[in-house]
Nucleic acid binder design. Structure first.
Lengths: 150, 150
DNA sequence: ACTCTTAATAAGAATAATTCTTATTAAGAG
DNA sequence: CTCTTAATAAGAATTATTCTTATTAAGAGT
């Protein structure tokens, strides 16, 4: 993302914070700026190191907390929708996964021939492909129900 | 997977082990049996608990090691291709990811309108969808090169 | 079957990523 | 400018996973 786009993103952050009654802190701005201007899908540690030059006293915990809140605000997202634990499957039939971002449950979605995913040509230039699957992220019905109870 | 399919899978494991000069251990058999007969994408802890009834002395380390080796043998796979660290991205333009299973590098793949993924109808019944992206797993060219050096 | 080599294991310590606890700071409402 | 409290820094704690080391057992060779 170029400078202008990053600046626009910061403006969006400010609006989003106001809307959610969240405070616009330097930490939030600098961390979003860093993720938005990076092209390397940085991890928390990399963001921490990069942001230190602007905010020398920042703690790694703030980075984690802020990345999570920026995700909540829909400003950034987590590549691969990391789950706290690795989960395994022995069924090699090509199928997709619906992953509930709230409870971590994984739902299989088996598709027919017509709905099979096609791997973009570009991918073959990057390396040797082992497999590919569609990852659908959302909130499952069960968790949606729970939300209403609160 | 039904009993018969599980048994077939165990046979495949035995063949694969012989081919790779790996020993056919009870731990490998029971762990594969557990993952293959489960429908819940179990994590290491769940496999550990389930397998304890058959092998009361099994250690959690063996479960982790065995799950990894079963993955190597292509008998099971890891849902979501868990990476050791969470990685973030601020670019919400729909795009896919090529994830190198060896070095963890994530490569963006931007696609044109025609190659856009279509979310299977079934997914909408499971819950509220936030987003979806294609995850292509493989080994990047750089890592493929390194392999040859050995 | 018996022996031997060594891959695989159990046990528990160690590590790495992430989250929690608590005291302090500062955003922004009034 | 003051006050409330959300957000933070610091470091301890936790959780998933991996490593270390001594022991066991698979299976090759006899």
């Amino acid at each position: 993302m170029n400078n202008k786009m990053v600046e626009e993103k910061i403006e969006k952050l400010k609006e989003a914070c106001k809307k959610q009654h969240m405070r616009v802190t330097n930490q939030r701005i600098e961390i979003l700026k860093e993720v938005a201007s990076s092209t390397s899908h940085p991890d928390a540690e990399a963001v921490f190191e990069a942001v230190k030059s602007k905010l020398p006293n920042i703690s790694i915990d703030t980075v984690y907390r802020t990345l999570a809140s920026l995700e909540d605000l829909n400003m950034i997202f987590r590549v691969d929708n990391q789950l706290p634990k690795a989960r395994f499957d022995a069924d090699k039939t090509p199928h997709h996964h619906f992953i509930c971002t709230r409870c971590g449950e994984v739902f299989d979605i088996f598709v027919n021939e017509r709905d099979k995913i096609k791997i973009p040509q570009q991918a073959f230039k990057i390396g040797t492909i082992k497999d590919a699957n569609l990852q659908i992220r959302g909130v499952c019905n069960k968790c949606n129900g729970k939300k209403k109870e609160n």
